[in-house]
Nucleic acid binder design. Structure first.
Lengths: 167, 167
DNA sequence: TATTGTTATACTCTATAACTATA
DNA sequence: TATAGTTATAGAGTATAACAATA
């Protein structure tokens, strides 16, 4: 019993109610399909809610991670947010341009750039958290706290499995 | 108590273990962040696994929905897969070019194109399901059938809430 | 007037690889 | 030789609006 997900596919699909009168068929056995459509919609909502701010995708997440981990390197940030390091360069460029974060050369390892959020960045992050919180609540308001908690845990375990597989 | 997700945010974040030594901070209170990084990784895996087939994103999902719903219109397909109708045109163009699906004018409503999968499409879909199944198993093999089932249910409820909000 | 499908366009995102500087 | 960061570029994805045919 190396894996039990194959067994789960079969049992899950037949009990699963469809969104409307449209059937998911065999596709209903795959989590990736569901993840994609929910995430696409959520990111559209996010883009619409923050369009006035002109935010690049990944910028909000990156700034949040920097706030929670002062001195984090760009490589570590890339890994945590799930972006390529070249994308992270662009994001940090913008964060610096807006004055929301700064790069500082590490004294221990001069290859590394340590990242720090600024006071302006924190203030802006407060606004963003408020906006994004409202957007998410519109989608999540039917999930109970316990369900929300479990959802986050499952997603974290999935992401950890992704990371383990590729390094 | 119109919504309890705000309360859930606070309680979830503090109990949630982080992926590594990096903290998610306030970002850990948002599901969108977790959804995005898992989905990004999964879609990368999918692209890598199907690169030999040269598949446009959304093509696999669309063909699966067409198989499960013979005669579905492009609008309905767009809604179910979560893509814009203009994107669906491109996808159906490719499906027809490969000979995996066909358009047929509806006799009841001559604006509509009814979509049907071909035998070649079904055969190809079999291969794709096998490939994608293996890819997903690599990420999902630690989730129990019950957890997998619950995850799908939660995602479906979230997507239904998305759709309700915008029509 | 609204809906289905189509086309065109501009923009964003992503993957990739080459390059530097440090280790 | 390996890692952190950078740059450049091509390709894929997306949003948007305008349009024709039909309801």
């Amino acid at each position: 019993m190396k894996t039990h997900s194959t067994a789960a596919r079969g049992s899950a699909s037949r009990q699963m109610p469809d969104t409307g009168r449209v059937s998911l068929g065999r596709l209903g056995d795959f989590v990736g399909f569901r993840l994609r459509r929910v995430q696409n919609q959520l990111s559209r909502d996010f883009a619409a809610a923050t369009s006035a701010k002109g935010l690049r995708s990944g910028l909000f997440s990156s700034l949040g991670i920097i706030e929670a981990n002062p001195g984090i390197s760009q490589s570590e940030l890339s890994r945590e947010v799930g972006l390529d390091k070249s994308v992270t360069v662009t994001i940090v460029d913008e964060l610096e341009k807006f004055g929301w974060a700064v790069r500082e050369r590490s004294k221990e390892d001069r290859r590394r750039h340590e990242l720090f959020i600024t006071d302006e960045g924190k203030a802006h992050l407060d606004e963003l958290f408020t906006i994004v919180g409202k957007t998410e609540d519109a989608v999540l308001h039917q999930l109970s706290p316990a369900e929300l908690h479990l959802l986050s845990e499952l997603l974290d375990r999935m992401y950890a499995a992704c990371m383990r597989d590729e390094g």
